[in-house]
Nucleic acid binder design. Structure first.
Lengths: 332, 332
DNA sequence: GCCAGATGTGGATACGTTTTCATGAATCTC
DNA sequence: GAGATTCATGAAAACGTATCCACATCTGGC
């Protein structure tokens, strides 16, 4: 049996109980303005007695903005975005800020819709892994949102603060490692939103004097199915490749699976490096050599950036690291 | 260069532009009440012309409630909760409802804090994987929140709608499968919040006439470190065990890792079954036999339940399934 | 003991929406 | 065609808060 007649006490109730005006209560509780110790005491006591909690609704309307931060990620099921989200939540929760989350599935239309929804809610701080192009974010900026991009920069919005991993160095390290083992026909399994890494991949090959074979650069969408299709297609179409660099953990997963089903032995037949270190990389057979990325840190830093809007720091680049396990061997 | 002087147009602007009253605009746009086709047209045109989007702030204050749903999970990094969250988001986004997410880390205090925050925001619909006991939720019910629990029931709140997996059947299936392979000394690696499964584990052993060895029932907290410590401790302390049932994917992960480091061969030395099917289960060596749980479905159903508050459906139990791969063998 | 300034205080207003209520017009009933 | 009923409509109130502004009280300086 629930007593639903219990009205929440408002600032007015507190004012009456403390025998002061509502303005005074507001000042005392929000810490702004001045108040004598005596009234201060009265107000605090009354608020505690009535178990008063200020209504975010009233405050938001008055202030014309919703506290908290909006978070847009492609897929919360991807461990990378899971860790990124965790970082955002850790920072936001310690700052007492609520987080509104939405998944874009890397679909620009969906992203636009979510942006609209955030504007409607007057959320003014947004962290996003962008899937659309720069224009898509026009309405957001026009509405005065302060935005921080994570994982991917968006072309034409270079002035927007962005937190990324050091893709160039990460890719170069991986390619050099593979080349050092004698590999020349190296494939890159990439995903929507990894233009940066594809570019770095070409550059790294160029620098080593290895000709770029465009057929070995494959792009998938952000889903397990698409990743598997891409990996499987790659192995079947180009069985002459000797090494694969997977652009993310789902792509790595797909590569391992496809290799297994097509009876490519790792690392005897094909060497494999995966972007993003995940717990199972150590568990699978053979243990996967990876380029780790500080996903959780990325989220945390992005949240810091979006909360302290004052600083005009442009782009934060976080280091990656090659972790050698057992999935790479000399060219067969 | 951003033009920040752009004020968002309000319902009043639309009313003026359409030469009608604000009440009429509200009625037309929200679809409630009646309006003549002519005015209807005028209002719609004016709204489109001004690019009007109703402010959620004003509406929320007037309605005395925030739309959308709050979601409380222990750890967004755990693939199980990732999929559950995905289910919630899928349902919520197709209903146009925003989702506020928070992570409890299975800490009741943190949970209480998050509940308080939701009340402050006047969020009235909450989906939670509860970590605290029934009392903790008192304030939420008193505030009139409609709550749906997921994954775990909470004792003393049996009248609250809850979506769970069929733990009893799942555990029994696993135990019977192991017993059928000849195993008697079966350990259960469990986690905070799995009282239900522990009970089912005892029942299943009882039913088979296998004596319950309390030392083989281990409890960990909801973190990778704790899971690993529990698994490692179990193997070292009781090397006589022949099979392990892991209560979740992190526990399974820990068991695989600990077994590997202590040179227990799976399944020769020890058989392993894990609750929760995850993509890497197929990739690791040997591929893991699992009890799959419909995590995404769970989230989706919970969201459905919390959105259609009308129905007074109590508890939804979703089926689990034994998926045999390669991590179980006959007793050595 | 009087004025300038500082300080504490509360009334009133605005934020944008939904909903109630009253009013006038239009339609229907017999 | 007169009364009854429905319909469309807009003015106004309310939601809970923060802040502007005016007023009252107090402090210190001469």
């Amino acid at each position: 049996m629930r007593v639903s007649g219990q009205r929440r006490s408002t600032i007015k109730d507190v004012a009456e109980a403390a025998e002061v005006g509502v303005a005074t209560v507001s000042r005392v509780l929000s810490g702004t303005g001045s108040a004598s110790p005596a009234t201060r005491e009265k107000v605090l006591a009354a608020a505690a007695r009535l178990d008063y909690r200020p209504s975010a609704l009233g405050r938001n309307l008055r202030r014309q903005r919703t506290g908290g931060i909006g978070l847009l990620v492609p897929d919360i099921t991807d461990p990378f975005y899971g860790r990124l989200t965790d970082g955002v939540l850790t920072c936001a929760q310690s700052a007492g800020e609520p987080v509104m989350i939405g998944t874009t599935r890397d679909d620009p239309e969906r992203e636009a819709q979510l942006i609209g929804s955030l504007i409607e809610e007057s959320v003014e701080r947004v962290i996003a892994v962008p899937s659309g192009d720069g224009e898509m974010w026009g309405p957001a900026f026009r509405a005065g949102l302060s935005v921080v991009f994570a994982e991917r920069p968006v072309q034409g919005r270079e002035n927007i603060p962005t937190v990324v991993a050091d893709d160039r160095t990460g890719v170069r390290t991986a390619v050099e490692y593979l080349a050092g083992l004698g590999h020349r026909r190296i494939a890159f399994l990439s995903r929507h939103g990894q233009a940066q890494r594809v570019r770095a991949f070409r550059e790294a090959l160029d620098a080593l004097g290895v000709p770029v074979d465009e057929e070995l650069i494959v792009r998938a969408h952000s889903s397990r199915d698409s990743a598997y299709a891409a990996a499987s297609g790659l192995f079947q179409h180009r069985p002459d490749l000797t090494a694969v660099l997977a652009g993310g953990n789902m792509l790595g997963e797909a590569a391992v699976l496809a290799a297994k089903e097509l009876d490519f032995r790792v690392p005897r037949d094909v060497s494999l490096i995966m972007f993003d270190d995940v717990p199972w990389a150590e568990l699978c057979y053979p243990p996967l050599t990876v380029i780790s990325q500080p996903a959780q840190d990325m989220g945390y830093r992005a949240a810091e950036l979006v909360l302290r809007e004052g600083r005009r720091s442009r782009t934060v680049t976080l280091p990656t690291e090659l972790i050698v396990r057992g999935s790479c061997g000399p060219r067969r």
